[in-house]
């Protein structure tokens, strides 16, 4: 399966439902059971909220199923980036997925890669 990309504005919470639908579709394509799919959807949307906490206005999510299910969530259009309080989010995301790698721009998290 080729990568699937979603790009959206983080300031409008109604887009999160669309993101969950898109991620749910890819989880189904990867044949995840419904519980694992729900965990992954929560982790992707929470990652988006982390980027928002760090000051990004938008996020691009790239989903792929070539090597397990992978989601790369990248922030864009951040005028003034901050570190944000994200320890708890990251701890819980780590508990829900197989691996969670983060990339920082200075102190701010700019990219999160999730893998099941």
């Amino acid at each position: 399966m080729k990568n699937f990309k979603v790009s959206f504005c983080l300031s409008d919470s109604k887009y999160f439902t669309a993101v969950r639908l898109a991620v749910g579709g890819v989880c189904a394509a990867a044949d995840l059971d419904v519980d694992s799919a729900e965990d992954f959807k929560v982790c992707v949307t929470e990652s988006c909220l982390i980027l928002k906490n760090c000051g990004f206005d938008g996020a691009e999510i790239t989903l792929g199923t070539d090597d397990g299910l992978i989601a790369e969530i990248c922030g864009f259009d951040g005028a003034s980036l901050v570190e944000g309080q994200n320890e708890f989010s990251l701890a819980l995301i780590s508990a829900l997925v197989s691996s969670c790698d983060i990339v920082r721009e200075g102190a701010a998290i700019s990219k999160i890669v999730l893998k099941v």
């Binding site: 929560v42 949307t45 309080q85 708890f88 508990a95």
Partner: peptide, 15 residues
């Protein structure tokens, strides 16, 4: 309080 979404708390609590 923890800076996460309600849905996230729900999942964490269930786990």
């Amino acid at each position: 309080i923890l800076g996460v979404s309600q849905m996230f708390v729900s999942r964490a609590e269930r786990k």
